[in-house]
Design a protein around this nucleic acid. Structure first.
Lengths: 179, 179
DNA sequence: GGGTACATGTAATCAGTTACATGATTTA
DNA sequence: TAAATCATGTAACTGATTACATGTACCC
């Protein structure tokens, strides 16, 4: 059995099952939606397909209900917990992916077309400001329940959205021009 | 011919060919490496496969050298320029993907294991600080040659790396703990 | 003239994404 | 009890990633 290299998605699932205890995919989806999923999209089909692989790998066990919705309950196996803990002890050296199509548009904007640049900047500023307030709402709702590490994680996202909003406001006010 | 929806990678290629004029994939790779590719990874095989699709779509034309390395020279077609300009006029409403495995590790860190958290934070702080200085070097080198829009784009990346470095320094100094 | 790094691609795998489909619960 | 929404999945596609492969130019 040449073991499959685990992806970030694998570790996400392992971490979620550890956080939630035995749980369904839907439970995981709920948690992802209001936390890490705010910054890193994990479509729900991934949350189904990856556990299936992890069961094959022996890192999760699954138990299907015999009644009602026949949901699958997922649990960490001993090997799964071991894999999770090893990952926890090895800080990654992978660079952050900052994939922003708005930035791509700025990169390829025509410096002579100031109107387009300002329109882009205004749209993105508003976008990031809306996200700042969404994040505030979420934070208020979870701040008493969530673990300290999870709250802390949300902070970097928060910082990013705020500097992005400021950045685009500045671009709108003082757009790059020709020459 | 139902036209294929263009991806960010498609627009990247179209934009690069517009910026560089008729060029090879390698020319594009060089530019990507010192700019947008610092934040959004585009493996070079993508820079080969996507132009092939765009040629199929009629958005690029290609002309292979008959001698030497038989490189392929790529050019925007009229339809390609039209597609690029339409994209330029339509600010995206797609959210920024901030994919950071270090953050994932913080999210799933054990609040009781302060040592692991501090080690993670130190590693990531150093990582982002190194990137800040890489970016400074690049900026110094290109600041007289590059277009204003392209320089401006790099700034958000720069801001991000700086706040990430600060964030992790703070986590190291004042790590989230149990209870 | 042999080694090394640059340049140019191809192939195969696999994960990510979108779309589809439908059953179970709640609410009007 | 019908409509709406929540919940739970599957399937097909295709793009992203990794690995492989080889040619060309330059340097020692």
């Amino acid at each position: 059995m040449p073991e499959r290299p685990l992806t970030p998605t694998s570790h996400l699932i392992l971490g979620l099952v550890d956080t939630l205890g035995p749980c369904t995919v839907y439970d995981m989806k709920q948690l992802v939606n209001i936390s890490i999923g705010m910054f890193w999209s994990f479509p729900h089909s991934q949350l189904y397909s990856e556990p299936a692989r992890l069961v094959d790998d022996g890192l999760l066990s699954e138990h299907q209900e015999q009644t009602g919705r026949r949901r699958r309950i997922l649990k960490l196996t001993r090997a799964g917990r071991k894999a999770l803990n090893e990952w926890r002890q090895s800080p990654t050296d992978v660079k952050t992916e900052l994939r922003d199509e708005g930035l791509l548009q700025l990169f390829f904007a025509d410096p002579a077309d100031t109107d387009a640049i300002v329109a882009l900047a205004e749209a993105r500023r508003k976008f990031h400001e809306d996200r700042v307030s969404m994040l505030k709402d979420i934070q208020n709702e979870v701040k008493d329940k969530a673990e300290s590490t999870k709250l802390r994680t949300m902070e970097l996202g928060f910082l990013f959205e705020k500097s992005a909003a400021r950045f685009w406001a500045d671009v709108a006010k003082n757009p790059p021009g020709p020459e």
